[in-house]
Amino acid sequence: MTIALFLEQLLNGLQFGVMLFLMAAGLTLIFGVMGLINLAHGSLYMVGAFACAVVAAWSGSFWIGLVASLAAAAAAGAIVELVVIRRLYTRDHLDQVLATFALILIFSEGTRWVFGSIPLYLDIPTLLQGTVPLPGGSRYQLYRLAIIGVGIAVAIGLYLLITQTRLGMRIRAGESDREMIGALGVDVATLYTVVFALGAALAGLAGAMVGAIQSVQVGMGEPVLILAFVVIVIGGIGSIRGALIGAVLVGVTDTMGRFLLPQAMQLFLPPSQAGLIGGAIASMLIYLLMAVVLALKPRGLFPAQA
């Protein structure tokens, strides 16, 4: 193992974490403001990826595709909020789980209906192709660095949005006292739609960016969704800061675990077994991380004020 390889894996973990953050930020915002658990958040990720792939193929530009992914996911989010989600705010979590589970079925099968089962491919834009040198002599994909950059920019943007703007003030008010903001004359229904669409757009952005590294296909959002749940549980549901820290923690733990554990196992196991056992344990590592965090802090690292 070289330093360069280690650094590369660390950056991969960071990139994975940043992508999880984009998903988790929306989920945690929606839960914090509206008290809603949204299983269909992964579907919005998928919508973003498909919109980007289709529009990029049609227009020849990744960037137009990226804009389209934001617009499509936000629009899908707004429509879903208006038609379904807003009937669920007063319901218990059980109804929310079932309704959003049904939405996943509709989204997944609907997408398969329109685009078929064959994955779409999305190319990395020319501007971001190529690699940059890393200390230690190896090179790292520029595009992955760009994803990290976008994630950091979104984190700063969200921070400014929530602390500096009128919308942010209302979001904070909504998190601390749902009934109060209505009494203060804020148009709660519109606020909720906007927050939901914002969360959806972030998920769509994540889907589009990841679509260029992996393939774009039905069901791509579900594994990410579950990891995003782990992230917000670790970070504390409702906390954007918790989502950021939890996402990086999960991203790095997962990537580094898969990289390091099989090697560590070789110290006391034959190589073939070390790979298997190390790999199997690595696949469970983030869940163990979650279990440890919860055993110590049942409401996550940064519990939002309830």
């Binding site: 658990i37 749940f229 549980v233 549901i237 298997l276 790999g279 199997a280 696949s283 869940y287 919860l294």
Partner: peptide, 30 residues
């Protein structure tokens, strides 16, 4: 033992996550 220390939406997500843990273990254990 761990999940029941939490409640509500935390409980939903944690039980989901533990099941996923076993799921991934089954996939990666040949």
């Amino acid at each position: 033992l761990i999940s029941l220390r939490t409640a509500g939406v935390y409980f939903i997500m944690i039980t989901l996550a533990f099941a996923q843990m076993i799921f991934y273990f089954a996939i990666s254990w040949p």
